[in-house]
Write a protein that binds this DNA or RNA. Structure first.
Lengths: 331, 331
DNA sequence: TTGTAGGCGTTATCAC
DNA sequence: GTGATAACGCCTACAA
């Protein structure tokens, strides 16, 4: 069913149908004609063909969201936030999951360049070079590209200060191997805060996990435990989850033997035993903000260069004072 | 940059370009010409305009995946599985998150009908009526619609039998209020298995949670605890997570005081304390299978009417024998 | 082996 | 106020 069918049924020309249905009928088409057209369209269940419209107007009313791993629980809410904001603005969101490795990693993104997308939101993914459409970077930064990100500096600093105030002097960093500015920043801020507190950052243990998976994180956490850490800052709640596994295997208890701070406040943080102290970030807000910044860019406004979203330390049960000397010596 | 630009640069006609680049040049275009065209296309960075192609061919090479809640951790892997299968077949996947409530719930789906999509995969969402494109239902069943789903009967039966074999005679069902065949099936199978074991299903406690969220599930779990359940079958791992919260608040221990079986084997199941016994289902396989069935339908093959994917009981630490009479009497 | 021509369903610019 | 008419970029008979 095309606009021609509607026109025929309404007894008008096809262009009148187009005028009416695209809302440009103001003072150009009589109210009577307009009503007839609308009725005909409804009766026929007419829906404009998006391909034809896109071809004619050069606009797809679709934006792409590129993520490195749909599987990570953090993305669901991000997508939902972006989707809602986009929906309100009359846009659809195409989700693209780029394969973690390999040179063809960007193949899916390139496919989008072909025109089905009017803009791109890249989450922790380096925005492709030489793109025609507007881009917004999420949780990553590239010169000249507008961005949306969390206040990682404040979040990380809050986490380390919390541990420091509890009296810890041996704070391990359980880091993600994933290459992204947000993780680099955590390392940097952590070192700075510890240095400011009189600790030598180079003396503090550090371990790296390749995957955002519990067993991998547990292996890395074990290194930290072996290095005598009494507190651990994990780059992410999933990684923090690995610490629960590692301590359990060692017969250690959180927070009695080791304190732990995670990052993201994923839902499962609250059901762990003890519940995880973590930095809460609102992923839906991130997604929505990303779309808004992108929308402004698509409208041609170049004002806003980025947006930083606040985060918050949630103290739950996984942090406490360091163990006394005797208890620590036990192992 | 259009195919006309490529043609001009290669010194051939536009149709020759089209022939070459759509792979239909076999024995119709000379190797030399073909090489020239390809070079020109590469130099110019030509990418066919999908809108134009879709308009001309009537095919979008895109399928939609409709989910009720992107936020649930189960979907990430489903999407990834579908995405991979689709990608290999040259299709893109458009993710659509339908708002959980309200009449406009299907608005996003309707938007897709307009033509941007060649097929639809509906996850736990009632497939819309009178659709033009092929549909496959995931984890839901509608007469006449091909489906892909897990072997819920086997999974549920395995869970209940496991509890029964452990000696439990008071088995609570912590159910999701979410309206879906897969959940109805769990109730039905659970009752059947218990009846077969000589238990009166109507005597067994049952509680319902509206949301797939830990606090809500915890509230419902508390009812079951109050009703004297010594074992709980949860419709889902997230819901099972609520039981950890509820037992902790009550000072009860899993599995000493109450046994628990979840469903889905979400990643966090392994880091809970004790690790959760659950029914493992492979969500990526589900997504991939859904695309395959849909692809067959899109090819016009009407043979396969559905596919059932096996699941498996993973015994971890959350199940054990029921407490002795004395211990139970204590509370 | 290559080129010509027509049309997919819209929107937008003009005449009427 | 309304209706022809011309693109948008691509694919595909069919003609040369």
């Amino acid at each position: 069913v095309t606009s021609v069918d509607v026109a025929r049924r309404a007894g008008v020309s096809q262009s009148t149908v187009s005028l009416v249905l695209s809302g440009k009928a103001q003072g150009r088409v009589s109210a009577r004609t307009e009503a007839v057209v609308r009725a005909a369209a409804r009766d026929l269940g007419y829906r404009p063909n998006v391909a034809a419209r896109a071809l004619r107007t050069g606009v797809a009313r679709t934006v792409g969201l590129v993520v490195p791993d749909v599987t990570h629980p953090f993305f669901g809410p991000v997508l939902r936030g972006a989707q809602q904001a986009a929906w309100r603005a009359g846009y659809a969101v195409a989700l693209v999951d780029v394969p973690p490795t390999g040179d063809w990693a960007l193949a899916p993104v390139e496919a989008l360049q072909a025109g089905p997308v009017d803009g791109l939101m890249c989450f922790e993914v380096e925005p492709p070079e030489g793109t025609e459409v507007p881009i917004v970077a999420i949780e990553t930064e590239t010169p000249g590209v507008p961005f949306v990100r969390f206040d990682t500096e404040a979040g990380t600093a809050a986490a380390f200060r919390h541990l420091l105030e509890l009296g810890h002097t041996r704070i391990g960093h359980l880091a993600a191997a994933f290459e992204a500015p947000t993780f680099d920043l955590r390392t940097e801020v952590g070192r700075k805060v510890m240095a400011a507190a009189g600790l030598d950052p180079d003396e503090q243990p550090r371990a790296v996990t390749e995957l955002f998976e519990f067993p991998a994180a547990a292996a890395a956490a074990t290194e930290l435990l072996d290095a005598g850490a009494t507190a651990i800052f994990a780059d992410d709640d999933v990684i923090a989850g690995g610490v629960y596994l590692a301590t359990r295997a060692r017969g250690l208890r959180i927070p009695r033997d080791v304190s732990l701070v995670g990052y993201d406040d994923l839902p499962f943080a609250q059901i762990l035993d003890p519940p995880l102290t973590t930095i809460a970030a609102d992923p839906a807000a991130l997604g929505a903000a990303a779309f808004e910044v992108l929308a402004a860019r698509m409208r041609g406004e170049n004002g806003e260069s980025g947006r930083i979203i606040p985060v918050e330390l949630i103290e739950r049960g996984s942090t406490g004072p360091p163990p006394t000397g005797t208890r620590r010596a036990r192992r």
